[in-house]
Nucleic acid binder design. Structure first.
Length: 522
RNA sequence: GCGGGUGUAGUUCAAUGGUAGAACGCGAGCUUCCCAAGCUUGAGACGUGGGUUCGAUUCCCAUCACCCGCUCCA
């Protein structure tokens, strides 16, 4: 098991490789950067597209029972009120300064008593002091000095030396006041609360020229809602029967309090979601089935099962709408973190939208002659998180001995070929031999319509191989003197194909090259 | 949101209260018959804004961003 610092160091190398080679850049870097936002460079864009295309291929194109949707990002406020995104999370919240519990400001009960205010605290022996303001409310009838214990606890947490007992602290009390019906203190411990703050993770905007209450819209916080809201339209136009799914890939936005870990938690991110609708009695079984199917998907794109962890989210930690949720987590260098949630959302969403709009969303089962609100199982994958996992998983350093017998490090991105941003490098062995260059350009033209190819004629061929290693190109084709027939007709029109992982070389006929590489990209 | 740390070239690092260096990488040229070879040559940086100062990349303050530990993640 790698130590924390080794894992941090590995992550730093990955981040700098992403920048250096053009996978991922800080958004608006030349203006100082925009917190929690990232741009994909030329290679990152390819990786991300390959992932999305493969997901779409497997879940929509190759399945009869799932259809696609591409919903708008701007979302009607009523949609998000019905889903619960607006109601519960737009209220002002305050935090307890001592326990850090977050409370809804309008639900803090009114209390009366003596507020004891402190300007700070100090520790005589070590000379340490702090001037953070704090206060404790002592209920009427109790000894006001009992506030000291709470205050010592508060300031004690700020002590740099944890061996110092909070009891040794000198408190700097600066005033006492009698308060009636105050809501500024935590009822469970008397500690001061922060000022109430708006706490809504959604980005709000207004639609149209006038910006009244009615024009409020939000950037969607998840792609799922447009699927629920369009359920009836999709059902009618696609001629699907239960069970069936609606798939969507698209951007979602959350104003995260603290974006972290490179692209892992960003404010703008892309989701790949399926809402798979079914009868209520099939919900739990389908949740388990989808979990297995999704695990296989990750293996197919090059994330081995042993690097994935399945978390059966316990009661109380699941979202309010879910009665069963599995998180699929990946072992990132910065910790085990979620890639995808497979949640059984019951009939919560369709029912809520039916109630809120006054237009019930029901499905009529011809055979059973019954009408009901479908339930839904949702495998919801984070696209950017998966790209990051693919990059972390691909990153490898290997020690090789060069021709002078010196050891050096070869950095290789071991992407699965179907994920790799560039599929094949094409090199003339020497750039000052026009016949080689011309032939190499022919090979590039042959492959380009089929896959992303990178032509390179600068520097020694070994360097060109290493450049491709670092961006994960699985194959390189080198055009040499054999190719142009200088060493006999039997080798004419063959190229050297060099394999990224083994560094082995093999001769392949040019006309067989598309099939040779193509077969490894499926 | 709290606490700590870091911002110098594309990357990784130096040095400095008075002209900012290197390595690797990148571009051009020469050379080269398969794994980062060599030679010549070129481009390229003090996150941003204030303050102190004759003068600030350096000291101070603020801000922005990133990293680490908590917290949060409907």
């Amino acid at each position: 098991m790698a130590t924390d610092s080794e894992r941090n160091e590995r992550m730093e190398k990955i981040v700098s490789l992403c920048k250096r080679r053009g996978f991922i850049f800080q958004s608006a870097e030349m203006y100082g950067g925009l917190n929690g936002c990232w741009d994909y460079g030329p290679l990152g864009a390819e990786v991300k597209r390959n992932l999305k295309d493969y997901w779409w291929q497997k879940n929509v194109i190759e399945r009869d029972d799932i259809v696609g949707l591409d919903g708008s990002i701007l979302t009607h406020q009523e949609v998000l009120k019905a889903s619960g995104h607006v109601g519960g999370f737009s209220d002002p919240m305050c935090d307890c300064l001592l326990s850090r519990a977050r409370l809804r400001a309008d639900q803090v009960p009114e209390q009366s008593g003596t507020a004891v205010w402190y300007a700070g605290a100090s520790h005589a022996d070590s000379g340490w002091s702090v001037d953070t303001e704090f206060a404790v409310l002592v209920p009427s009838g109790k000894d006001a000095d009992s506030a000291k214990k709470t205050a010592r606890q508060f300031y004690g947490e700020r002590l740099p030396d944890k061996k110092v007992s909070p009891k040794e602290l000198e408190l700097i009390e600066h005033k006492r006041e009698e308060l009636e019906a105050t809501t500024r203190f935590n009822p469970s411990n008397g500690a001061l609360l922060t000022e109430p703050r708006e706490f809504n993770l959604m980005f709000q905007t207004s639609v149209g020229a006038s910006s009244g209450e009615g024009s409020i819209a939000y950037l969607r916080p998840e792609t799922a809602q447009s699927i629920f809201v369009q359920f009836k339209n999709v059902l009618e136009t696609s001629r699907q029967k239960l069970p069936f799914g609606i798939a969507q890939i698209g951007k979602a936005f959350r104003n995260e309090i603290n974006p972290r870990n490179f692209t892992f938690r960003s404010r703008e991110f892309e989701q790949m979601e399926i809402e798979f609708f079914c009868r209520g009695e099939d919900g739990l079984r389908l949740t388990d089935e989808w979990l297995e199917r999704r695990l296989s998907f990750y293996e197919e794109i090059g994330i081995p099962r042993e690097k994935l962890h399945i978390l059966d989210v316990p009661d109380g930690e699941r979202a309010h709408y879910s009665s069963k949720t599995y998180d699929i987590e990946y072992d990132f260098p910065f910790g085990i973190q979620e890639l995808e949630g497979v949640a059984y959302r019951t009939d919560y969403d369709l029912r809520k939208h039916g109630e809120a709009s006054g237009k019930p969303i029901e499905y009529f089962d011809e055979q059973a002659k019954e009408k009901f609100v479908p339930h839904v199982v949702e495998p919801s994958a984070g696209c950017d998180r998966t790209v990051l996992a693919l990059i972390c998983e691909a990153y490898d350093e290997e020690t090789v001995t060069n021709e002078k017998g010196k050891e050096e490090t070869r950095t290789v991105m071991r992407f699965d070929p179907k994920i790799a941003p560039v599929k094949c490098g094409v090199f003339p062995l020497l750039k000052n031999k026009p016949e080689l260059v011309a032939k190499a350009k022919e090979v590039k033209a042959l492959l380009s319509p089929l896959m992303n190819v990178f032509y390179d004629e600068t520097a020694a061929v070994g360097r060109r191989y290493r450049r491709q290693d670092e961006i994960g190109t699985p194959f390189c084709a080198t055009i040499d003197f054999d190719t142009i027939g200088e060493n006999g007709p039997e080798l004419a029109n063959t190229v050297t194909v060099r394999d990224r992982d083994s560094m082995n070389q093999e001769r392949v006929k040019i006309d067989q090259l598309p099939a040779y590489i193509g077969s490894k990209l499926v």
